[in-house]
């Protein structure tokens, strides 16, 4: 609807997930926070479309707020 593709698109999800995990190997919490922020900016530039990034951000935010509404804790 908003251009954000959310269907299954990853050939090897385990490998992709492992790439994310490996990137954080040995980093402090502060360094990991920085890594995630830089990762998002690099991916956002790769996408190159503020509308898609905003749609993904809105989707992620809705998911977090949904947890809050259920009385859950996203950070648990």
């Amino acid at each position: 609807m908003n251009g954000l593709l959310t269907e299954d698109r990853i050939k090897d999800p385990d490998a992709l997930y492992q790439a994310l995990v490996d990137a954080h190997d040995g980093l402090s919490a502060a360094e990991s926070l920085q890594l995630n922020a830089r990762l998002i900016l690099l991916l956002a530039n790769h996408i190159g479309d503020a509308g898609i990034v905003a749609a993904a951000a809105a989707s992620a935010r809705a998911s977090v707020l949904d947890d809050r509404a259920r009385g859950g804790d996203s950070t648990a």
Partner: peptide, 24 residues
């Protein structure tokens, strides 16, 4: 917030090497 500051610092750090981050 800490997360928003992380984005700001990330843009500044990436700006050393990347033109797209300089523009942010």
């Amino acid at each position: 917030s800490a997360a928003i500051r992380a984005f700001r610092d990330a843009a500044l750090a990436l700006a050393r090497d990347h033109g797209f981050a300089r523009r942010m």
